[in-house]
């Protein structure tokens, strides 16, 4: 046996400990939501604290899912199962998953999707992209979010709009290039966008490939995240 085989595969160790962490954060979130339900905040300060707790643990949860998924993508062990699904199902589920987070943050979330709209995609992967973007928007929006979906030129277009300050210029120019140049001290590695783009790209149909787009403005005058699936 060579030396290299004796060495620990750090990526694998990391992946399996991320897996454990995700379990713990899941428990943390579930207990937190139970606490909020049993003991609703009685003043603004408490509401604020709950909000922070809730938001930060949701964010950790989302990041851990991303890490695991990216690890599997890199080790070619991420099964993609594309089938026809009702779009409203995946959106409703993410709204339900984050409903408590929206409430504690006092954010009004509007869902716009035709009940009969069906498209071809991987349910879990697209679901986790929507989830991450929603959690991220909670941090930046002022008070409103619109989650919508429709078909545009043979692409499913899922859009998340907020009324926050919008995406910074650097991100608008080349959203996913930033992953490589990410400044860890900056506090945001833009891993979420990289993740979203990878998942978009996994969806192919004929010569078309999925992609993401960031804009400012939209109906609410804030950031607009778009996911296009062919």
């Amino acid at each position: 046996m060579s030396d290299s085989e004796d060495k620990i595969d750090f990526a694998m160790v990391l992946a399996s400990s991320v897996h454990d962490m995700k379990n713990s954060v899941g428990m943390l979130l579930a207990s937190l939501e139970a606490v909020i339900e049993e003991m609703p905040p009685t003043n603004a300060r408490q509401a604020n604290l709950f909000n922070t707790l809730h938001y930060e643990s949701s964010r950790i949860n989302g990041e851990l899912i991303q890490l695991l998924t990216i690890y599997r993508m890199n080790s070619d062990f991420l099964p993609v199962s594309i089938d026809e699904h009702y779009v409203v199902d995946v959106l409703e589920e993410q709204v339900a998953r984050n409903s408590s987070l929206m409430e504690t943050g006092n954010i009004e979330l509007e869902l716009r999707c035709d009940e009969d709209l069906a498209w071809y995609y991987d349910l879990d992967l697209v679901g986790s992209v929507v989830h991450n973007v929603l959690v991220n928007c909670v941090r930046y929006t002022k008070s409103r979010l619109i989650l919508s979906a429709d078909i545009e030129d043979e692409f499913l277009h899922i859009r998340i709009q907020d009324n926050g300050p919008g995406y910074p210029d650097t991100m608008l120019r080349s959203p996913t290039d930033l992953v490589d140049k990410a400044d860890v001290n900056d506090g945001d590695t833009h891993l979420g966008l990289y993740f979203a783009e990878c998942i978009a790209k996994m969806h192919k149909q004929n010569e078309h490939k999925g992609y993401i787009k960031l804009e400012n403005g939209g109906e609410l005058g804030g950031g607009v995240f778009s996911l296009f699936i062919p």
Partner: peptide, 8 residues
């Protein structure tokens, strides 16, 4: 499951 994807 706490896993990210059903298929995994």
């Amino acid at each position: 499951s706490a896993e990210a994807s059903r298929n995994i």
